[in-house]
Simulated assay, not measured.
Amino acid sequence: MAHTNDHPGERAAQDPIKLIAVRETPLSVDEVFRAVGDAAAGGIALFVGTVRNHDGGADVDALGYSCHPSAEAEMRRIAEKVVADHPVRALAAVHRVGDLRVGDLAVVVAVACPHRAEAFDACRKLIDDLKHEVPIWKHQKFSDGTEEWVGAC
Rank of each mutant, 00 (worst) to 15 (best):
V94L: 14
A2I: 06
E74M: 14
R11P: 13
A62N: 10
H7M: 06
A122Q: 11
I127N: 12
G37Y: 06
E10A: 12
K138I: 09
G103M: 03
A40V: 00
L46A: 03
L100Q: 08
K131G: 07
L126T: 00
V29N: 11
H68T: 09
A12L: 05
R77L: 09
D121V: 00
D55T: 04
A73C: 02
T50A: 07
V22P: 02
F120P: 01
D15N: 13
R52Y: 12
F47S: 00
A2N: 08
V108G: 02
I127F: 08
I17D: 13
V88W: 14
A117V: 13
K81R: 14
D15V: 04
A73F: 01
R76K: 14
A39V: 15
C113A: 15
E10K: 07
A79D: 08
E80K: 04
H95D: 07
S28D: 15
F33E: 15
G98R: 02
V97N: 11
H86L: 15
R101D: 06
I17W: 13
L19E: 08
A58C: 11
A93P: 02
V82A: 03
Q14D: 14
D129Y: 08
C113W: 11
H86P: 15
V36G: 10
A110W: 10
A93Y: 08
V22R: 05
A122L: 11
C113D: 08
A62V: 06
D104S: 02
D15F: 07
T4W: 07
S70R: 09
D99N: 05
R96L: 03
A119D: 12
